[in-house]
Design a protein around this nucleic acid. Structure first.
Lengths: 219, 219
DNA sequence: AGCATAAATAATAA
DNA sequence: TTATTATTTATGCT
């Protein structure tokens, strides 16, 4: 049952090593950004400028954290999860609250080493578990994450759910309504006739395009 | 009436493995609803009756395409590339034009098998090359992709209360101003045109979100 | 320590 | 395909 490919971030507890210039961070702009904020150095900054590291953080492997952050993002995306979902799920399972902003800032390393060090194992553990459930099927993952499984994506349109429903029921009966029928449907739903006509066009298109590929897709 | 098409596939290579979409299946699932259509075969029917699949596509390995599409997205994200970037880069290196929409549709398999079959090798080749350059450093990748090296996110604009007020008054009059109008408003307020455009986008968004109460609101 | 929302990205009606 | 909407990410602010 144990998730296999999770060796990800376990490395030797090395201390802040001089940054090999070869390694480029995808998420961290290395630029000599004007650090206007004299507050607190962030991981993203320190990782490329170890000499700035304040004392008391020698035991924190910044490089490892950076690696993990990058890896975390990829794994999160592979699971199809959003920062919001992760935050909410963590809030539910773990003690403290984690906002979307928090996850975002971790991924971007816009966070103090201390905070990062504290958050890392929490994320590591949670993500591993999420991957584990995902192995058992998408449904399990969604359940674990806590979102309603049936959370349908909201239609982009000005079509109301009710209207869609009606349209679909018409479509099921007849995917290619006559001009007369379109006019009637449009009237019933109080939408523009043209809008309804195009809806049927797109609906047919989508079905045609996806159905072939989806033949082998398990629903 | 043993329809020969895809007959072989109907038995063996049906992969019931982990739900393909770790990546948010946003496509309107026909839902669990009993899709009973009169004149058009639906996915649910095709799954159990693959013989309904149109002919002329026996040579296309749909399962392989599906796998690749999923994989492609993950690899794209791992490289930190957007659909837009891929489309633009392809347009530059390959012949035809590829829009962001095209990439989107490929990833979602919202395209005909024929198109997919044609596009797959192009994407495959391009992505491999992109990964190759990435190995040599982020800079090389960005150069290959064609975008400026590290296009930093635009600094978040803060509107003055006065500006907000003016914008709102315009919005009340017309929530969907034309390009011309946007330009004028931007000029009047002395803000970037793009900033004003996005403000209207987000404003419409917010309004829509808050007024969920009016479910029946027929736009 | 987050909320509100600006900006960026993905999906889709036209 | 193109414009626009829908969704997600990032950040200014207190």
């Amino acid at each position: 049952k144990a998730t296999p490919q999770l060796s990800a971030a376990s490395q030797s507890p090395v201390i802040i090593a001089p940054q090999p210039s070869a390694l480029k961070s995808a998420t961290t702009p290395p630029s000599a950004a004007p650090v206007t904020c004299a507050d607190m150095a962030k991981v993203g900054q320190l990782v490329s400028k170890p000499h700035l590291a304040p004392s008391g953080e020698e035991g924190i492997n910044l490089e490892e954290i950076r690696e993990f952050a990058k890896n975390f993002k990829i794994r999160r995306l592979s699971l199809g999860l959003t920062q919001t979902q992760v935050g909410q799920a963590l809030t539910a399972t773990e003690g403290p609250a984690y906002s979307q902003s928090a996850i975002c800032r971790f991924e971007k390393l816009d966070i103090t080493p201390k905070s990062a060090q504290k958050l890392k194992p929490v994320l590591e553990k949670w993500l591993a578990e999420a991957e584990h459930w995902n192995q058992k099927g998408q449904q399990n993952l969604m359940e674990f994450v806590g979102g309603e499984p049936s959370k349908k994506r909201k239609r982009r349109t000005s079509f109301t759910p009710q209207a869609i429903e009606v349209l679909n029921s018409y479509f099921e009966k007849n995917s290619l309504p006559t001009g007369q029928e379109i006019t009637e449907i449009a009237k019933e739903l109080n939408y523009d006739r043209e809008v309804v006509r195009v809806w049927f066009c797109n609906r047919r298109q989508t079905l045609k395009n996806t159905s072939k590929i989806n033949i082998f897709q398990v629903q």
